[in-house]
Computed example of a mutant assay.
Amino acid sequence: MNATQLSRLTPYAVVGAPALMALYGGIRLVPGSRQPGLGWTAGHTAMFAGLLLFAPVFLALRRRLAPGGAAGRIAVGAALGTAFAGLLCSLAQIGIDLVVGVVAADKAEQSRLFDRVQEVPGVLPVVYQDGPLLFYVGLLALVTAASVGAARTLRWWSPVLVLLGTVAAGADLAFVPLAAACYLVALAPLARPAAAPRPVLV
Rank of each mutant, 00 (worst) to 15 (best):
A49F: 05
A49C: 14
A49K: 04
A49I: 14
A49G: 03
G50R: 07
G50I: 05
L51T: 08
L51G: 14
L52W: 05
L53W: 13
L53S: 14
L53V: 05
F54A: 08
F54D: 03
P56N: 05
P56L: 07
P56T: 02
V57L: 02
V57S: 06
F58V: 09
F58S: 03
L59A: 15
L59T: 04
L59E: 13
L59H: 13
A60V: 03
A60Q: 09
A60F: 03
A60H: 07
A60Y: 04
L61P: 08
L61R: 12
R64Q: 09
R64A: 09
L65Y: 01
L65I: 10
A66D: 13
A66K: 13
A66I: 05
P67T: 03
P67C: 03
P67V: 06
G68E: 14
G68H: 11
G68K: 07
G69V: 06
G69W: 03
G69D: 01
A70F: 07
A70K: 13
A71N: 06
G72H: 02
G72Q: 01
G72P: 01
G72K: 04
R73P: 00
R73F: 02
I74L: 08
V76S: 02
V76M: 10
G77I: 03
A78P: 00
A79P: 03
L80E: 02
L80T: 07
L80I: 09
L80H: 01
T82S: 11
T82V: 13
T82R: 02
T82P: 03
A83L: 05
A83Y: 07
G86Q: 09
L87A: 05
C89F: 12
C89M: 12
S90V: 02
L91F: 04
L91H: 10
L91G: 06
L91A: 09
A92Q: 04
Q93I: 01
Q93K: 12
I94Y: 12
G95Y: 04
I96C: 11
I96D: 10
I96S: 05
D97F: 08
L98I: 06
L98F: 15
V99S: 11
V99Q: 08
V99D: 10
V99K: 03
V100C: 10
G101H: 08
G101Q: 06
V102C: 09
V102H: 04
V102R: 10
V103K: 07
A104Y: 06
A105Q: 09
A105P: 01
D106G: 04
D106Y: 09
A108W: 02
A108P: 01
A108G: 12
E109L: 09
E109P: 14
Q110Y: 12
S111E: 15
R112D: 15
R112Y: 08
R112C: 01
R112N: 14
L113W: 04
L113T: 01
D115W: 00
R116W: 15
R116I: 07
V117F: 12
V117I: 13
V117A: 13
Q118R: 15
Q118P: 00
E119N: 14
E119C: 01
E119Y: 12
E119W: 13
E119P: 00
E119S: 15
V120T: 14
V120Y: 13
V120C: 01
P121H: 11
G122C: 08
G122V: 00
G122E: 09
G122W: 02
V123S: 09
V123I: 14
V123E: 11
V123F: 09
L124F: 13
P125N: 10
P125T: 02
V126R: 03
V127Q: 06
V127I: 04
Y128K: 02
Y128G: 01
Y128D: 03
